[in-house]
Design a protein around this nucleic acid. Sequence first.
DNA 1: CTTGCAAATGATAACAGTTATCGTTAAGGT
DNA 2: ACCTTAACGATAACTGTTATCATTTGCAAG
Lengths: 129, 129
Amino acid sequence: MVRMTEQRRVIYEILSREAWHPTVDELFLEAKKSLPRISQATVYRNIEALIQDDLATKIVGLNGPARFEKTKAPHAHFECRSCGAIKDIFIDTECINSIMDNKEIQQCATETIVVKLLGLCQVCRETNI
Amino acid sequence: MVRMTEQRRVIYEILSREAWHPTVDELFLEAKKSLPRISQATVYRNIEALIQDDLATKIVGLNGPARFEKTKAPHAHFECRSCGAIKDIFIDTECINSIMDNKEIQQCATETIVVKLLGLCQVCRETNI
DNA sequence: CTTGCAAATGATAACAGTTATCGTTAAGGT
DNA sequence: ACCTTAACGATAACTGTTATCATTTGCAAG
C-alpha cells in the first residue's frame, strides 16, 4: 500500500511552485532544505510514484536530465535547445482539438498529446552571441 | 573540413528507409552488415554530423535510447509508452499553423515545433493485456 | 608516385543519469 | 508495546552517451 510520506509531500510541494520545471537534482537540493537527510533515490522513487498517481508529469528534452512538473491542464512547452530550460505556453484548446481530429491519431489509441516548441531562450540569445 | 565518408553514407542510407526510427544500436547493427569493422562511436559521431547538416533528426522518448529519422516535411510522432516504438503521423499543416499563430510562441523565437502523441501501440495492446 | 597533413576511424575509458539492491527506519494497525 | 511492511538512505550497478587517443585514410602539394 502507498503512503503519503513527509518526503513525498515535500517533493510535491516543491513541484507545485509556479513556472518551475525542476530536474531530480534540483528537487533533491530543494528538498534537502527541509529534509536534510533525504536521499536522491527517494526523489527518484517519489517522483515516479507521483507520476503513477498522475500528480506529476515527466518532460524529456533533447539533452540533459529529465524535468518534471505538477500535472495541470494541457499546455505546450517551449524548450531552449541550449540550456534546456522549459517555459509553459498556453495554447488554444481549439488547436489541440484540431490535431486530435485525425483518423490516424484516433486509431492509435492516443492517450496524451505533447506539443513542444524548440528554440533559443532569451537568456541564451543574450549571452551566447 | 567535413568529408562524406563511406561510414556516413551507409548510416544515412539506413536512416532513409521508410517507417524506420532506429536507435544508435540498431543503426550500428545494420551498418555492420556492410561495414563489419565499424565502431559504435562512429555511429554516434556521424548521426551527430547528419543532425548538424539537418539531414537527420533526433527523437527523444520518455524512456530508453534516442531514436533518429531522416529529416523530412513536418509531421507528428506517435510514441508507444510501453515499447518506445515511433510511428509517423501526418497531420494537417493547418493545425501546425494554428498553433504557431500565437503571440507567446512567436516571442519565444521558436525554430521547431514537435507534436507527439503518446499511447500504447497495437503490438503492446495485444501482448500486454 | 610518395610524402605530409588533417580529418575520420575504431577501441575503449570516462561520464551522466537512472534504476536496483539491501540493510535499516518508522508508520499504522492490532 | 509489538508486528508487519512500505518507504527510506546509502550505494552499487547499469545504460546511454561523450571524450580520449593512437591509428588509418583520403586528398593535395611537391
